[in-house]
Simulated assay, not measured.
Amino acid sequence: MSQDQHTHEPQPAENPEIEHEESDVPAGRIATLLIGLLAGVAMVALVLWGAFILLERQAQRSDIVRSPLITTPVVPPEPQLQAVPSRDWQQMLAEETERLNSYGWINQSAGTVHIPIERAMELTLERGLPVRPDATAQPAGQMPGLDNGYNLDSSGGIEPTTPGGSINTYIPRSIPVPQPTAPAAEE
């Protein structure tokens, strides 16, 4: 094979279906689009400005007019925020410490006073704690004022069985056990 057969001369590519744009983008159409867009934005801004003025006037009409003679400040409801919580804590602690370590009246007309905590503890040791006059000693596991049928131990108020007994021999303490009676004699 020779080299002459494989060489080709370049030929211009012709494709009649593909063409290029003969003119530029029409500037008039772009200008019209931009002017319309700006006019729309301006119109929306005017509508919102008018709505703002209308709503502002309505809000001013509905505001409560306070008398200029009122001088008391309006305090928000509790709980209020603390500006400096540590200072408030120190102030409360100082007030409580002062009350615990001083004498003072609780109710002067009734003759009720408070005394320092140290003195109160001394008096309690000297005099003892008050006891109700009707208080009686309760057996272990019983609470005052409760019937003996209410046992507060872990058995739940059930008597233990005797050795060799069955579960049917459990008798709750809170249920009275009926005693057998002799049948009534018929006449």
Results as ranks from 00 to 15, higher is better:
127 R>G: 01
150 Y>M: 01
119 R>H: 09
154 S>D: 14
152 L>S: 01
123 L>W: 08
111 G>T: 04
138 Q>S: 13
141 G>D: 05
145 G>V: 01
145 G>F: 03
116 P>I: 01
129 L>Q: 13
158 I>C: 02
143 M>Q: 04
157 G>H: 01
158 I>M: 02
146 L>W: 13
140 A>M: 13
123 L>I: 07
146 L>K: 00
115 I>P: 03
146 L>C: 06
121 M>L: 15
123 L>C: 07
135 A>H: 13
144 P>S: 11
136 T>E: 14
151 N>R: 00
148 N>E: 12
122 E>V: 08
124 T>W: 00
128 G>K: 06
122 E>K: 08
152 L>Y: 03
135 A>Q: 14
136 T>P: 01
115 I>V: 09
124 T>L: 10
146 L>Y: 08
121 M>Y: 09
150 Y>L: 04
143 M>V: 01
148 N>T: 06
110 A>T: 14
111 G>Q: 01
144 P>R: 03
110 A>G: 11
129 L>T: 10
146 L>N: 03
157 G>R: 05
154 S>Y: 12
158 I>K: 00
139 P>F: 05
112 T>S: 10
125 L>D: 11
151 N>E: 03
115 I>T: 02
131 V>F: 09
138 Q>F: 04
127 R>Y: 06
121 M>V: 10
142 Q>P: 00
159 E>W: 08
127 R>V: 12
127 R>H: 11
119 R>S: 06
139 P>E: 11
159 E>M: 15
135 A>T: 15
138 Q>R: 12
111 G>D: 04
147 D>P: 02
153 D>F: 06
128 G>I: 07
111 G>K: 02
153 D>L: 05
117 I>V: 15
148 N>Y: 05
119 R>I: 06
152 L>V: 07
138 Q>V: 14
161 T>Y: 07
112 T>D: 13
145 G>A: 13
160 P>N: 11
143 M>G: 03
